[in-house]
Amino acid sequence: MLYVKVKTEDGEELVLEVEGMTEDEIREELAKAGFKIEEIEVYEVEP
């Protein structure tokens, strides 16, 4: 499983499960949803 931890400019932290997306695609999708991203951390969790 691939997850991203996202910190927004307003200090909110989100953890999202993503599969088959690049970091650029993740940033693009979050921007479309109205999030202003300060930091993204991508990590993989073994089942």
Results as ranks from 00 to 15, higher is better:
1 M>Y: 13
7 K>H: 08
23 E>Y: 14
31 A>P: 02
29 E>N: 09
24 D>T: 09
24 D>W: 14
35 F>Y: 13
24 D>Q: 12
2 L>P: 01
33 A>G: 04
35 F>C: 06
7 K>M: 09
47 P>W: 07
20 G>A: 06
12 E>Q: 13
21 M>D: 02
29 E>I: 15
39 E>T: 14
21 M>P: 02
18 V>F: 15
31 A>H: 09
45 V>E: 06
12 E>W: 14
8 T>S: 05
14 L>S: 02
40 I>V: 06
30 L>I: 04
15 V>D: 03
15 V>Y: 13
19 E>G: 10
13 E>Q: 07
11 G>D: 03
44 E>C: 14
4 V>Y: 08
28 E>Q: 11
32 K>G: 04
18 V>A: 03
16 L>V: 05
14 L>N: 01
7 K>W: 13
7 K>Y: 10
42 V>F: 14
30 L>D: 00
37 I>N: 07
6 V>L: 08
6 V>S: 00
13 E>S: 09
4 V>H: 00
36 K>M: 07
13 E>C: 15
37 I>K: 06
5 K>G: 02
45 V>L: 10
47 P>G: 08
8 T>L: 14
44 E>T: 13
2 L>K: 14
4 V>E: 00
22 T>F: 04
3 Y>M: 09
37 I>S: 07
41 E>L: 13
24 D>G: 08
37 I>F: 08
28 E>V: 10
35 F>H: 03
40 I>E: 01
32 K>S: 06
29 E>L: 15
34 G>A: 02
28 E>D: 08
35 F>Q: 01
42 V>G: 03
14 L>K: 04
43 Y>I: 08
36 K>T: 06
1 M>C: 11
17 E>W: 15
9 E>T: 12
16 L>K: 01
29 E>G: 07
9 E>I: 14
45 V>H: 11
20 G>M: 06
36 K>S: 07
14 L>A: 03
33 A>W: 15
31 A>R: 13
28 E>I: 10
14 L>H: 06
23 E>D: 05
16 L>F: 14
34 G>Y: 03
9 E>F: 11
40 I>G: 01
30 L>E: 00
20 G>H: 06
14 L>R: 05
8 T>C: 15
39 E>R: 10
46 E>R: 10
19 E>I: 14
18 V>M: 10
41 E>H: 11
3 Y>Q: 04
31 A>L: 11
5 K>D: 00
20 G>D: 05
21 M>A: 05
43 Y>S: 05
37 I>V: 10
2 L>W: 15
12 E>Y: 13
4 V>M: 03
39 E>F: 13
6 V>E: 00
23 E>G: 05
43 Y>C: 08
47 P>T: 09
44 E>P: 08
10 D>K: 08
27 R>G: 02
17 E>N: 08
33 A>L: 14
46 E>T: 10
11 G>S: 02
38 E>G: 08
8 T>R: 06
10 D>F: 09
36 K>D: 05
34 G>V: 02
5 K>Q: 03
33 A>R: 15
8 T>I: 05
24 D>K: 11
42 V>N: 03
4 V>Q: 00
32 K>C: 11
39 E>W: 15
33 A>H: 11
40 I>D: 01
16 L>G: 01
40 I>C: 04
5 K>C: 07
9 E>Q: 12
36 K>C: 08
46 E>F: 14
27 R>D: 00
40 I>L: 07
37 I>P: 09
19 E>C: 15
21 M>Q: 05
14 L>T: 03
4 V>I: 08
45 V>S: 09
24 D>L: 10
35 F>D: 00
11 G>Y: 02
40 I>F: 10
44 E>L: 12
5 K>I: 10
18 V>T: 03
33 A>D: 02
5 K>P: 01
38 E>S: 13
27 R>I: 09
7 K>S: 05
10 D>R: 08
18 V>S: 02
19 E>R: 13
45 V>A: 10
3 Y>A: 04
43 Y>E: 02
16 L>M: 10
41 E>N: 08
3 Y>I: 11
11 G>F: 02
2 L>R: 15
2 L>E: 01
44 E>R: 13
43 Y>G: 03
16 L>S: 01
39 E>Y: 14
30 L>K: 00
8 T>E: 01
32 K>H: 06
27 R>Y: 09
12 E>V: 13
9 E>N: 09
3 Y>S: 04
3 Y>D: 00
33 A>Y: 15
1 M>D: 02
17 E>V: 15
33 A>V: 06
44 E>S: 13
19 E>Q: 13
43 Y>M: 08
26 I>F: 03
24 D>M: 10
19 E>S: 14
44 E>D: 11
26 I>Q: 01
2 L>V: 08
40 I>N: 01
46 E>H: 13
20 G>C: 07
37 I>A: 08
28 E>L: 10
46 E>N: 13
10 D>I: 05
8 T>G: 07
26 I>M: 04
9 E>H: 09
38 E>Y: 14
40 I>K: 01
5 K>S: 04
3 Y>L: 11
47 P>Q: 08
19 E>L: 12
31 A>Y: 11
7 K>I: 12
35 F>K: 01
28 E>N: 09
13 E>F: 14
2 L>Y: 14
16 L>H: 01
15 V>S: 04
15 V>R: 06
30 L>Q: 00
11 G>V: 01
47 P>I: 08
34 G>F: 03
24 D>V: 09
15 V>M: 10
31 A>T: 10
7 K>T: 12
42 V>M: 08
30 L>N: 00
46 E>I: 11
9 E>M: 12
14 L>Q: 03
2 L>C: 08
44 E>G: 09
2 L>A: 06
43 Y>W: 11
31 A>V: 12
27 R>T: 03
6 V>T: 02
22 T>E: 04
12 E>P: 03
27 R>P: 00
41 E>K: 09
21 M>Y: 10
8 T>A: 04
11 G>A: 02
11 G>H: 02
8 T>V: 04
40 I>S: 02
47 P>K: 07
20 G>F: 09
3 Y>R: 14
17 E>L: 15
30 L>F: 09
38 E>R: 15
15 V>T: 07
38 E>Q: 13
35 F>S: 00
1 M>K: 15
25 E>F: 04
7 K>R: 12
22 T>A: 03
28 E>C: 09
25 E>Q: 10
13 E>Y: 15
9 E>R: 12
6 V>C: 08
41 E>R: 11
32 K>N: 06
6 V>Y: 09
21 M>W: 08
25 E>T: 05
17 E>P: 07
34 G>E: 01
32 K>A: 09
34 G>I: 02
26 I>A: 04
2 L>I: 11
39 E>N: 12
35 F>R: 01
28 E>H: 10
14 L>V: 08
36 K>Q: 06
34 G>T: 02
